[in-house]
C-alpha cells in the first residue's frame, strides 16, 4: 500500500483559442475558461485506478499557483483524490514560475507527506515544458517512468510501458518513483455532481513555497510573446508550365 502524490496544473482550457496580449507580455488569461491540464487529468485517473486496485492507499492532489488553482484541486478531489495541497504562488512569481521550482516543491512535499509515488502529466498544454517529472525525479534521486502508456504493479516495484518514438518500451522500476502520464494511459472519468459536492468537504491544505523552503523568485524574464506567423495566401496557376515556372522562380526546383 502506498501513498500517491498527483500534480495538477490549472491551464487555459484546451478548447479556448489562445490570444496574445497586445503588449506582447503573455497570453490573455482574464475572463478565459480555465480547467485542469488534460495530461494531469490522466495522471489523477491513473492514481484513482491504483487506489481501486488497492495498490494505493491515499491520493494527494497538489497544485502550485494562484488562489484559483484550488478549483482544479477540487476537480481532482471530485474525481476521487482524498485530500489536496495548494502551494500558493501568485503575481509575477507565478508568471515566471519554472518547472525547476515546481519540481523542488513537489519533491519537498513528497518527502513531507511520505509519498511513495508521484504521478504528473507529461506536460502542461500552456507552456509545454515537459520537464517537471524528470526534474522531480532528479531532485529526489528516485527512478523515473516518463510518458507512461501502461503501469503495472509487481512484487519488486512497477512494470512500465513507455511511449517512445515509433514504438513502446517496457521498463522496470522500484518504488518510490516518479511517473509522467502520456495521452493513451487511460480515459479520465467525468466527476459526478454528488462527488463534486462531497469534494467540497475534503481537506485542502494551503502552504507557501517559503514554508517548504523553496525559493521561487523569478530567474528569467519574458522578452516577448508573439503569435505564430500567419500562412501566406496561395495562388492558382492556369497550367503545368506556369506551375513549373513559378517553382523555378521560387528556387524549389
Amino acid at each position: 500500500m502506498s501513498r500517491v502524490l498527483v500534480g495538477v496544473k490549472r491551464v487555459v482550457d484546451y478548447a479556448v483559442k489562445v490570444r496574445v496580449k497586445p503588449d506582447k507580455t503573455g497570453v490573455v488569461t482574464e475572463g478565459v475558461k480555465h480547467s485542469m491540464n488534460p495530461f494531469d487529468e490522466i495522471a489523477v485517473e491513473e492514481a484513482i485506478k491504483l487506489k481501486e486496485k488497492k495498490i494505493a492507499s491515499e491520493i494527494i492532489a497538489v497544485s502550485v499557483g494562484p488562489t484559483q488553482s484550488q478549483e482544479v484541486i477540487r476537480t481532482a478531489l471530485a474525481m476521487g483524490a482524498d485530500r489536496g495541497v495548494h502551494v500558493e504562488v501568485s503575481g509575477k512569481d507565478y508568471d515566471l514560475l519554472q518547472p525547476i521550482h515546481v519540481s523542488k516543491i513537489l519533491a519537498k512535499l513528497a518527502l513531507d507527506e511520505k509519498a511513495d509515488l508521484i504521478i504528473v502529466g507529461k506536460q502542461a498544454i500552456d507552456d509545454d515544458s515537459n520537464q517537471t517529472a524528470q526534474m522531480t525525479a532528479a531532485v529526489l534521486d528516485w527512478p523515473q517512468g516518463t510518458f507512461c502508456n501502461k503501469v503495472e504493479k509487481t512484487d519488486a516495484g512497477l512494470n512500465i510501458t513507455r511511449e517512445i518514438d515509433g514504438g513502446l518500451e517496457t521498463i522496470k522500476t522500484k518504488i518510490p518513483a516518479v511517473l509522467s502520464a502520456d495521452l493513451r494511459l487511460n480515459t479520465p472519468r467525468y466527476a459526478t455532481l454528488p462527488n463534486i459536492m462531497k469534494a467540497k468537504k475534503k481537506p485542502l491544505k494551503k502552504v507557501t513555497p517559503k514554508d517548504l523552503g523553496v525559493d521561487t523568485t523569478p530567474r528569467i524574464e519574458v522578452v516577448s510573446v508573439e503569435e505564430p506567423p500567419v500562412r501566406q495566401a496561395g495562388a492558382l496557376v492556369p497550367d503545368v508550365d506556369a506551375l513549373v515556372g513559378k517553382l523555378k522562380e521560387g528556387g524549389h526546383i
Binding site: 484546451y14 495521452l183 480515459t187 479520465p188
Partner: peptide, 18 residues
C-alpha cells in the same frame, strides 16, 4: 455525452501533439 467529450478532448490533443 461523456464519451463524446472525452473523445473530443483526446482528438484535439492527438492532433496537437502526435
Amino acid at each position: 455525452v461523456e464519451a463524446l467529450y472525452s473523445l473530443k478532448k483526446y482528438r484535439a490533443l492527438k492532433q496537437r501533439y502526435y
